[in-house]
Structure formats: structure tokens, C-alpha cells
Design a binder for these strands. Structure first.
Lengths: 352, 352
DNA sequence: CTGAAAGCGCTTACAG
DNA sequence: CTGAAAGCGCTTACAG
């Protein structure tokens, strides 16, 4: 006798049907609140369900109906404020629409991103929302999603050449305004620390910088403009070099806050006063920007709204419109406006 | 003619069976690498599966087998370094054991935590790993997990009165060592900023503080010891009050880094030099502790290991031992050792 | 080592 | 408004 405590079977709609004295199909309809069932029966069924501790079996329902009522999201890092806030927005939308959200992180690795896609396909999610990893240069894995008849929404770090719904920030506009702000504060020699060229987000931020510079007709030496300076350490090194240069910048616009932090450390280490001698403006409004001394100016990306918008593309546009024929379908393209957060690092007291 | 592009059916094991010329049950076994199938057939089946773009259907398999090969984790906040690192550890363990991980966040709300539990039960996960929200004072919802025959592992913020596996930090020991470090640096009037008393983690951290104080035979006024000062703002206010007190503390041990940050701001705002006049030591080693000026000392909790250990309790202990009869079963209780990270805020140059 | 058959717990046309 | 019946795509004893 290996075990006499046999795992009692879970309650099914058949148990409820038997107890209430109706057909299982009617129980199913009652539990799903279909209009074709009388309220009397609905009440009866629901009461009995609670009484018997009935738990809806998603696996069975999904297998039968072919839909999982589940969205999968793939982000590079869940512990980056921008992404975790975006996820919070998606969760909100999912909750409102009675869907579930499965979160995967690619850890900025292409290989892991491909694995995430496979996992979500296996889970049979209805829709995949993705923000690409730094490493990702090919989007063949996204074709897999289409092949499996799942909806695809790209957000933030998107591949513009891959056709799908896209939700992004107004990167170029935001950067333009950020640099304009620096110019208004009297900075004239503004350096730019960007990201790798294959990601559209960083390209757009660079465009915004260049536009502002051009409009103000500023003279910027070529070596002020740097790509691939996303990380604190890289930025710090690069900033030190520039600041020691015979003709040093008087301000930095960086496409991440980590990069801005590196610049701040560089300035402090050289005994330069921020914002008097060096102005700094980052991007993303990470939590730590409030904690540094001086505090760091940055761009707030409305990440939660952006996440909600991404999920809502699925709920409002795709789900409601029904199974439109894919070929003729148009893809949603939404831009979420960001705003400048001016803190100490870029605000000069009007003495200069 | 509503749509002539009919959604082609997905490939099933029946399709593979037909093409290879064997029985569906054999295909299933081949795909699952069961030893009872010849290598020749396995090779054939797998090749055909790839060729037909076959995707394993979890819903069907789970429905049939009764197991979902899925673990659900509930954390208060995914964007807190401690939790996101712990999740990374769980993901690693899940990947090694061919399981999936579903992440839910309670957002520090009891109501949402209950919802998360319901969601995961509906998803039919095999095991729930949970760290309780700040608000949680009752654990009736955890009984639901047991009722549904799912394994339960508590980690970090655990309810010690609820029987389950538990993985925690050496909170008391770590705090003891942290305070001892402050004492060795010559601080004599060490204040304590704690959390709410109903959570065991914070109680243990307080115990460690008290023990170190007692051993060193320090005289601490009662008002140096504060509960419910987890947040930056609360801590900042409280610290200002204490530092203006006729007999002010010369150091603070706080149970979170946010609290430590509040103290740092308070000290700076009063023109006090850290660490010369005021020593500060936090807890959790949040990313921003490196970014402040001066940098903050803290306790590193090995969060990734802790997360991995939590998942491994399920894989090694529960899964391997089979369906042991629940009543006689013992619960795992593991303690992960943390280490001190000494930074500028607590290290006095030996001049005092 | 291979296969025939039953069944996991739902949903969904269809009939009444 | 209610119900009978088929089927979603697997797995798992069981027989050979």
C-alpha cells in the first residue's frame, strides 16, 4: 500500500452538472456568463461551484477553444525601471480584459531572446509583445511568431524593417527638446553619447540631437559625437578624455542615464562643477537620477502608458476587429510623448 | 465568403505519425525521448517534426498528464533588485529542469496578492514560490494553494507560522555583523530604522542589531530605535529629528537602502559629514548604493542564489522524492548567507 | 520496441 | 433557454 491518501480528483463541470441536475454544457455556459443561460441557473451553478471549490481548468478550455487568453512579453531586463513600469501597464490592460501576462527576459542576449520566443509559442500565447535585446540584429525569430498565427507587437526597441504593430517613444523629438534645453541654459559645446547604430531608438535620439545643434548653428567638433557609450564605465572614460581635451565640451547629452552617471563621475573626478562648468542630461528617468549629487536631468518616457498602449493595440485593434485577413491588414504605429525632467545637473543659475 | 485564407491547422503528432508511417503514441514517446523507443524512430520523428514546423501543445499535454511543468512566482515588486535577481535565479533552475516560470507581482498589496494566487491556481502551476507583500497579515490564501495540491515555497518575506518550505537570508546574523562593523569603526551611538513588526525579516534584522548593541554594552536611548521607517521620505524626516536631538546618534543602521538614502539626505541637509560625523549602513545592496555620494555601505543578500535555492527545493526535494504522503512530510528550511559591502558611508579613516 | 484505445476537462455548433 | 455529442492534441496504462 504505497499511499492510501489518494489525491482526490478536482471538481469539474460534470460534478456541478450532476449536483445541480442539469447538463455539463449548460454549466459551462453559465460559468462563462453566456446570455443564452437563465439567471436562475447561473446563480445556482455559481453557488455550487464555490461550494465544491471548483477551479476553472485553463488547459482544457484553451485546448478546446484554441485561444489561451494569454499575452507573452519579452523584455531585455525586468529590473530596468523603464521595462518594469511598461510591464505594469501591460498587466493593467490584461487585467481589464481578463487576460494573463507571461513575462520573459532576454537578458540582452539574442540567443535567450530566441528561446523566449520559442517558450511563448509553446505556451500558445495569443500575442507576443517584444522589445529587442541589444544583441539582436536579425529578426528571423519574429517570423516564427507570424508563422504560428500569433499577433506581434514591438515596443521601444523595435526593428522598423519588420512589419508589425509598433509602439515607441518620440525619441527624436524628446532628444531635440532636451538639447534645446541645454542650449537655453547657455551651453554651447554639447557632446553626444549614443548607442549602437543598429537600434532605431538610439538613431532617433541622435537625430534629435543633431537637429537641435543644427538649428542653433553650433560648432561641434566631430569627436564630441560618440556611439556605443551606453554604460557608465565607457561613458566615464570617454568623458574624462573629452574633458581633458584642449577644447572640452561644456555639456553632455547621453541616451541613457547610466551614461549620464558616468559623465557625472568623470566631471567630479576632474574637479569640475556640475552644472556650472559641465551640464548633463540623461535619458529614461531611472530611479537613481534623483539620488545622485547633483541630481540628474533626464527624459521621462511615460513607460507605464507605453506598456498599456502596447497591450491595448492587441485588445482594441486586433481582438475587436476579429480575424481580419492578414494581408490587407494595416499595422498600428503609436508614438508616446515623453517629457523633460529638469534637475540640478542641467539647470544653471543665471550668472553666465 | 468571409475569409478564403483559412487559418491552416497546426501540425499534430497525428500528422507526423501519418507521414512517418507509425502510430501517434509512438510519435509522442519519441518526441519525449522515452527509452522505450528506438533511436532510429526518434531520429525520423524529430526530423519530420522540424520539417512540418511542429509545435508541442502544452495545453493538451498538461490537460492529459495533470502536470503543467510550470512554477509560478509571486513577488511584491519586480523592479526591486533583490526580487529581479531572485527571479533570475529561479529562471536558471527552471531552465535546467525544463520547466517554465510565470511571474506575478502583488505590488505590495494584499488584495493583488490574493488575485495572483488565484491566477496561478487557474494556470494550474505545479508549485508556487512566494514572498509576501508588506500588507499581508493573513495567510488564508496560502491554504488555497495546499487545497489545490500545489507545492508552496516561501522565500525572504515569509510567514513563519505557516507551514511550508522556506528560504531566507541570515537576516539576524547579517545585521549583527553590520552593526559590529559600525562599532569597530568607532561609532557608539547607533540608531536603528526598521520595518513593520509583523514581517519576520524585519524582526530578525532588529534582533541582530540588538544583539550587537548588547554585546558591546552600548547605551542607546529608546528613541534611537524606530520601526516603520522603510521609505526614503519617512527615514529622512525621522533622521533629521534625531540628528537635531540634544543627544544625536553618530550612526544609523537601516533595514533597507531606501531608508539609508533618506538618512544620507538628512545628514547632508544638516551639513553633517558622512562618514566622519555620521555613519550609515543600509540593507539589500540596491544598485543606487554605488551611485550616491558618498557611496552607501549595505548588505548583499545573494539574491540570485536565494532564488535558485527556492526553485531547487521544488526540483530536488519535492519532485525527486515523489508523491510522499503529505502529512508525514518535512519542510525544507534553508538559510542563505549574506555578506557586508563596505563603502564610503561607514568607513572612517582612522583619525578618531 | 510498437500500437490501439481511452480519457484529461472543457467548448461549440447543432438540434430542440 | 437547455442539452447531446463531438473533438481540441496530447499521454498512459495495457497488450503484444
Amino acid at each position: 500500500m504505497k499511499s492510501n491518501i489518494k489525491k482526490e480528483k478536482r471538481t469539474t463541470i460534470y460534478d456541478i452538472a450532476r449536483e445541480v441536475g442539469i447538463a455539463p454544457s449548460t454549466v459551462s455556459k453559465a460559468l462563462n456568463d453566456l446570455p443564452s443561460v437563465s439567471n436562475k441557473i447561473k446563480t445556482l451553478v455559481k453557488a455550487k461551484a464555490t461550494e465544491l471549490n471548483y477551479k476553472y481548468n485553463f488547459n482544457a478550455a484553451n485546448l478546446r477553444s484554441g485561444s489561451s487568453r494569454t499575452i507573452g512579453v519579452i523584455v531585455p531586463k525586468i529590473n530596468v525601471a523603464f521595462f518594469s513600469d511598461a510591464i505594469a501597464g501591460m498587466e493593467e490592460a490584461c487585467f481589464e480584459n481578463n487576460h494573463r501576462l507571461i513575462i520573459c527576459q532576454s537578458d540582452e542576449s539574442y540567443t535567450k531572446e530566441v528561446q523566449c520566443v520559442q517558450t511563448l509559442i509553446h505556451q500558445n500565447v495569443d500575442c507576443i509583445i517584444i522589445s529587442l535585446s541589444q544583441e539582436t540584429r536579425s529578426t528571423v525569430h519574429l517570423n516564427e511568431v507570424k508563422k504560428n498565427h500569433m499577433e506581434l507587437v514591438q515596443f521601444d526597441r523595435v526593428d522598423e524593417s519588420f512589419e508589425s504593430h509598433r509602439i515607441v517613444n518620440d525619441n527624436s523629438q524628446a532628444s531635440y527638446r532636451a538639447v534645446k534645453h541645454l542650449i537655453e541654459q547657455g551651453y554651447k559645446k554639447i557632446a553626444f553619447f549614443g548607442g549602437s547604430g543598429h537600434l532605431a531608438v538610439y538613431n532617433h535620439r541622435k537625430q534629435g540631437y543633431l537637429q537641435a545643434i543644427k538649428e542653433a548653428d553650433l560648432n561641434i567638433p566631430y569627436n564630441y559625437i560618440l556611439d556605443n557609450a551606453l554604460k557608465k564605465e565607457t561613458a566615464q572614460k570617454a568623458a574624462i578624455e573629452l574633458l581633458k581635451y584642449k577644447d572640452p565640451p561644456d555639456a553632455f547629452f547621453t541616451v541613457t542615464d547610466h551614461s549620464a552617471l558616468g559623465v557625472l563621475k568623470a566631471a567630479i573626478s576632474l574637479g569640475l562643477r556640475v552644472p556650472d562648468q559641465v551640464g548633463i542630461m540623461g535619458f529614461s528617468n531611472e530611479a537613481f537620477t534623483e539620488f545622485t549629487f547633483p541630481t540628474l536631468s533626464s527624459v521621462e518616457q511615460q513607460s507605464k502608458n507605453l506598456g498599456k498602449a502596447a497591450a491595448d493595440v492587441y485588445f482594441n485593434h486586433v481582438l475587436t476587429s476579429g480575424m481580419s485577413d492578414k494581408d490587407a491588414r494595416h499595422f498600428e504605429m503609436r508614438v508616446i510623448e515623453s517629457s523633460l525632467i529638469i534637475r540640478q545637473s542641467s539647470e544653471r543659475v543665471p550668472t553666465l
